[in-house]
């Protein structure tokens, strides 16, 4: 699974930056076409849900997309599947 931010909805509040335990969301620096600074993703393949949702068949962690007030965070199927080398820092 691949983590994506819907640029048409994100308002750049950075709550995802606050809550992700892996610090995958980083405060952005550049304005997008809507004039909003959206967060950038740092190695999103580390996200628990990216890695394990398919295995467990349900949402894992998911705190970012629950707190996102603008319904901007979601996961999409990767097609074709791209295997990632994942380093998880504890």
């Amino acid at each position: 699974m691949k983590l994506v931010i819907d640029e048409s909805r994100c308002k750049g509040c950075n709550l995802c930056v606050l809550v992700c335990p892996y610090k995958i969301f980083q405060e952005g620096t550049e304005l997008n076409s809507r004039g909003i600074v959206t967060p950038v993703l740092d190695r999103p393949e580390r996200c628990t849900n990216c890695r394990l949702q398919a295995l467990y068949g349900r949402m894992l962690c998911g705190v970012c997309h629950m707190i996102c007030p603008d319904q901007a965070i979601s996961w999409v199927e990767e097609r074709p599947f791209e295997p990632h080398k994942v380093e998880v820092e504890f």
């Binding site: 308002k11 750049g12 509040c13 950075n14 996102c68 007030p69 319904q71």
Partner: peptide, 8 residues
């Protein structure tokens, strides 16, 4: 507004 908790 940006960051309003109501959406959450």
């Amino acid at each position: 507004c940006t960051g309003c908790g109501n959406g959450t």
